[in-house]
Design a protein around this nucleic acid. Structure first.
Lengths: 215, 215
DNA sequence: AACAAATATTTCCTATAGGAAACTTCGTAC
DNA sequence: GTACGAAGTTTCCTATAGGAAATATTTGTT
């Protein structure tokens, strides 16, 4: 069963590559810039004086001042004190303010019933939803479960991420590697880690239809 | 309208706090550990010698050696050279190898129809799904849309993340800040950025029921 | 086993980060 | 205006990071 989740994986890799790219290009601009400014922004946003920040981080006022004015390149140890003392999280620190806004906002995509992008496989007929949007955290799709027996799969489906499953019509048997199979009826749902083997078969007369969201 | 998404936001904050906590605790153990080991792992995983790594990063062999053996705490500038030269991405560097595996796997949670955790508000009746799992990327819930007019909201719903919406029964009007309202019927779906104001009202006689997943 | 080649570590020196205290700057009260 | 306090910057000194070269260690070869 290498049928189903390929398109998912591609999509995910695209996403993470993006992240790296953004960062690499940040570096490429010969980087010394930014760090000090960022620290200062963060400190001010918390309404701290250098003195207070000094107490929290254990770094000297003067040192903080120099860091903020890019007069020195702080030691890794110093960065850690900063991070801990001011409650910064690392990506926040390394992302340039511009890039920080790079996460999309204000997008919207409507998909009418049956008008998603078809993606058939031997065991499932997927209909990808919201395909107009490319950089999204979740991948939703509506799926007709054609398989009616576990034997139609040669192996577990396995990929990374988490998956949410909701039964829209019919009933299915959800097989998962580390649990007993469980039967789900219309309206039931499941949430699981995708690196655990999983597979779905229809148990109702007609093919069951489910909604799947992976992230 | 401060009714709907509060629990979401809390949940999200919890998640990111977690990140911080993990890191903080890393700090708490008096941190010098790890960084060097991580760098060495990464370099070896790329089959590089110190000499080659030196060329790529522009740092001296000796310096690299000292960093790997935690004999010095590299300057921020040095860390950046490392990151760029070896194609490391920052979180990878800061996550302890143990914590890296900390992303859960092999979990599963089943929610039967109507057995989610109720969460009523003036305009929506949410039923949270998969509540047995705490550290998950997505938050799924099934919602009865009680509001039948936009005027029942005092303001846009707005929070961060992305949201996927699927209409299970009835029909709704989806209001979004930057788009014309759109009517969705059973089986239709929408995907949007949550920082854009949004709100939902039932347009069918009976209250519509929708499935929502946020990430 | 002994050597050579490749790789890693240590030493030693110079450049620079970090801290304490002196020095500015700016606002506010008197 | 002067005096004062609070915030930030600069100076000066010491500790330490970074680089070049010497030393040690490992690996492979005959």
């Amino acid at each position: 069963m290498s049928d189903e989740p390929h398109f998912l994986i591609e999509e995910k890799e695209k996403t993470s590559d993006q992240g790296k790219l953004t960062l690499a290009s940040g570096e490429a601009t010969l980087e010394p810039l930014e760090l000090g400014k960022r620290v200062k922004e963060i400190r001010l946003s918390q309404n701290l004086t250098l003195e207070e920040a000094s107490k929290r981080t254990g770094l000297a006022r003067s040192t903080l001042s120099k860091i903020e004015n890019e007069q020195i390149s702080p030691t890794f140890a110093a960065v850690q004190k900063l991070v801990q003392g001011l409650g910064i999280d690392i990506p926040q620190l390394f992302a340039k303010p511009t890039e920080q806004r790079a996460q999309a906002s204000g997008r919207r995509d409507i998909t009418r019933l049956g008008e998603g992008k078809p993606h058939p496989t031997p065991t499932y007929e997927h209909e990808l939803l919201a395909t107009q949007l490319s950089q999204k955290k979740m991948i939703p799709y509506r799926t007709r479960v054609c398989a009616h027996s576990f034997s139609e799969y040669q192996d577990w489906v396995r990929h990374d991420g988490e998956e949410f499953l909701f039964v829209l019509s019919g009933s299915v048997q959800l097989y998962t590697e580390f649990y007993e199979p469980v039967e789900l009826h219309s309206g039931d749902s499941a949430y699981y880690d995708c690196d655990m083997g999983h597979a779905l078969v229809s148990t109702s007369e007609e093919d069951a239809v489910v909604l799947w969201v992976t992230a």
